[in-house]
Amino acid sequence: MPITVQHNPFATRFTRPGALPFLFNNGNRLESIVDAFHDCGFVCQIVGQHGSGKTTLTYALEPILRDNFHPIRRFTVRGPRQFESSETLTPTRSPTRIPLLVIDGFEKLPWLHRRLLVKHVRDQRTGLLITTHQPIGGIPVLLQMLPTLETLQRLTCELAPDLVIQKNLLAAIFDNNHGNIRESLMTLYNWFETQKTIT
C-alpha cells in the first residue's frame, strides 16, 4: 500500500505571501483596491502591523496590476543597506504599461533615500506601492490593515478545511499573538504537530 504524506497545513510553504489568498473582512475587493491605486496616481502605501497581511496583499494584487504595469520589481528592505529584489516578467510586453516598484518595509530605508525615491518615481512616471508599519507622510494610504479573529478563522478554513479547531483556542492564539496573523499561523503549526504526536 502506498504511503500517504500528511502535510502540516500551517507550514510556511502554504502560508507564505503569494501562497495564501488575501481575505478581506469588510467586503472590499482586489479590483476596488486597484482602482483606488489608479486614483492615487500609482503611488500609495499599505499600512499595518507585523503579520497583518501587507505583503500578502501586494502578491494578491500583482496579477491584476500586470495589466497596467511592466516590469514589476519587488524589493524587500531588511535594513538601511540590506534588501532583496525580484522581477516579475509578464508573457507579453506592451508599450503602454509603466514600471512598478513594490517596496516591502519602506520605513526601514533612510529618510533621505525615501524622499529621493518618491521624487524619482513621480518624475519618471513610475508606479510605487509600498508597505510600512507606520504611515509615511506625503504618500496616500491605500489600505490600513486591521486583521481580526475572523480573518484568522477564514484563513484556517482556507488552509485546512477538514480540520476542527475550537473557536476559543483560535481566539486565545490570536490574542496571545497580539493580532499578528503570521505568528498565529506559526502557533497553529505547533498545535498541529502536537495533535499528530497525540494521535
Binding site: H7, N8, A11, T12, R13, M186, Y189
Partner: peptide
C-alpha cells in the same frame, strides 16, 4: 525535494 516547516522552504 523540498523542506516543509516553520522556516523558509
Amino acid at each position: 525535494w523540498l523542506t516543509e516547516g516553520k522556516g523558509d522552504t
